[in-house]
């Protein structure tokens, strides 16, 4: 696998372990540029990861793993660009279909995937972490789905994967209140497999990868296929619901509030 150094992400391989690094400031917000590079990564994963046993996803940004979708770009593209057809929903749907394809490819990849999380993993960032087989979180990690405050549901596969992976108590609490939870709570809820000291998530993820590398790759793939089906039908339904909601004036108002906010609190649910 050829190493890649992009504007928003980079990746490389060593001893059967692929390391995908997120490095777009301020906190890896996912916009069109990140999406394009993630699509390239998904293609590499599909064509060149045959002998790899583990993928580690992590962020090099101090603020955290990923703060979710780039809401400023979303607002600009949906409401501020002059358009002849007025068809911003088609554009939103296209973005969702593309990001779902990438996230499904990571979710379903024939190797063990580990998200090494620190700081914020909110919205689309939380959804990216949920594509991984295992989450290793350091003590600074926080997870949240703040989408309802914008009049939306999570759109990058969050609800189907949350339903697949967690119990109703925590899944509904997070969805309906938008509250964030720390690493300890996330481990109690079975979201996180290991909680480690601040700054140690990536090292621990590599130690985990070394252990995975001792096993027969075919057995690893069979175990993964058996234990972690991708909820395709619900993921498609999620795109439909998101697009229906996106047409509401409440969403435009919510996004405008976020984009124009001078408050120090735009990320607080």
């Amino acid at each position: 696998m050829e190493p890649f150094e992009g504007k928003t992400i980079s990746w490389g391989e060593h001893n059967g372990v692929i390391e995908l690094s997120l490095h777009r400031g301020p906190c890896n917000e996912i916009g069109s540029e990140t999406l394009e590079e993630l699509e390239s990564f998904a293609e590499v994963l599909r064509t060149s990861a045959g002998n790899m046993h583990t993928l580690i996803i992590h962020s090099v940004m101090p603020a955290g793993f990923c703060a979710g979708a780039d809401l400023r770009e979303l607002y600009r593209r949906a409401y501020q660009q002059p358009r002849t057809s007025g068809n911003s929903i088609a554009e939103v749907r296209n973005f969702l279909v593309r990001i779902h394809a990438v996230f499904n490819a990571i979710d379903d990849a024939p190797l063990v995937t580990v998200a090494a999380v620190h700081g914020v993993a909110f919205g689309g960032g939380f959804e990216l972490a949920l594509t991984a087989d295992l989450i290793v979180a350091d003590r600074t990690a926080r997870f949240a789905f703040p989408e309802l405050r914008l009049g939306l549901i999570p759109g990058f596969g969050g609800i189907p994967r949350l339903k697949r992976d967690l119990g109703n108590g925590i899944a509904r609490d997070m969805l309906f209140t938008g509250r964030s939870i720390n690493a300890t709570k996330a481990q109690t809820a079975d979201l996180v497999s290991q909680v480690v000291a601040e700054g140690e998530a990536l090292r621990v993820a590599h130690a985990l990868a070394s252990q995975v590398g001792k096993f027969d790759l075919n057995a690893v793939r069979a175990a993964k296929k058996f234990i972690k089906p991708v909820p395709h039908a619900e993921l498609l339904r999620e795109i439909d619901i998101f697009c229906e909601l996106f047409e509401s004036p409440a969403v435009a108002a919510g996004l405008r509030r976020f984009v124009e906010s001078n408050s120090p609190l735009p990320y607080l649910p």
Binding site: A63, T140, S180
Partner: peptide
């Protein structure tokens, strides 16, 4: 807000 969240944690 992100720094406030880190303090909260």
């Amino acid at each position: 807000s992100l720094q406030a969240l880190s303090l909260l944690t």
